[in-house]
Amino acid sequence: MSGQAAYASGDVNDLDRDTCEQSKSMGTGNDPIWVSIYRGNAVGGTYCMLTTEGRLAAFTIVSAEQLPLPVSVTVKVVLWE
């Protein structure tokens, strides 16, 4: 990941490229960033992001094992051309 990400409502199945492109809060830079695996009291959240190659993508956090410090996190990803 490029270090640029922005929270998006819904699920990756509901997002389109234009919605993610309009997420101007993605910031700048190539430093790693951390996103919370929690939305409210549950695991979840959807983020639009730029890849290190400059491509637009989005992911939804589906589940996490062994909370509060998960060993693995499952995500659903879409990558646009």
Rank of each mutant, 00 (worst) to 15 (best):
V78Y: 02
V77R: 15
T74Q: 15
T19K: 14
T74C: 01
V35T: 03
L50R: 15
I33P: 00
K24Y: 11
T60A: 05
S2G: 09
S23Q: 14
V12N: 04
T28Y: 09
M26R: 15
A8Q: 15
A57C: 13
E65G: 10
L50P: 00
K76N: 13
E81Q: 13
L50F: 11
L79A: 07
R39L: 06
G44N: 09
T28E: 12
Y47F: 15
S9W: 06
I61L: 10
G10W: 11
Q4I: 03
V78M: 06
C20T: 00
I37P: 03
M49G: 02
G27R: 02
S2P: 11
I37G: 01
I37R: 01
S9D: 13
V62S: 10
V12T: 12
A58R: 00
E65I: 04
L50Y: 14
L69K: 14
L15S: 03
G29Q: 11
L67C: 08
D31H: 08
L15A: 05
P32T: 06
I33Q: 09
N30P: 01
V71Q: 13
C20V: 10
G3E: 06
M1T: 10
S23L: 15
K24R: 12
V71I: 06
E21Q: 14
I61A: 04
L79Y: 04
S23G: 07
P70S: 12
E53W: 05
G29I: 08
T46A: 00
Y38A: 05
V43R: 01
T51P: 09
W34F: 08
Y38F: 13
G40C: 04
T52S: 15
K24M: 04
T74G: 04
P70A: 08
G3L: 06
L50M: 13
S23P: 00
T60S: 15
E53M: 07
L79E: 14
C20W: 01
A42Y: 07
A58G: 08
C20L: 08
F59C: 00
Q4Y: 04
R39K: 12
S23W: 02
A64C: 06
S72E: 10
S36A: 11
A58H: 00
V73C: 06
G45H: 01
G27M: 03
G3D: 04
A6Y: 01
E65S: 14
G29H: 10
A42Q: 14
K76E: 13
V43T: 05
S63Q: 09
P68R: 09
R39N: 11
I33M: 08
P68G: 09
M1D: 11
A58T: 03
T52V: 10
G40T: 03
W34C: 07
T19Y: 07
Y38Q: 12
M1A: 12
S63C: 00
R17T: 00
V62P: 02
L50G: 00
G54K: 08
T19M: 10
I33V: 15
A57L: 06
W80D: 04
A42I: 01
A42R: 14
G10P: 11
S25T: 14
D16Y: 09
S63Y: 00
V43N: 02
D11V: 02
W80A: 05
M26Q: 08
F59M: 09
P70L: 07
S23R: 15
T60G: 01
K76H: 11
T74M: 09
G40Y: 02
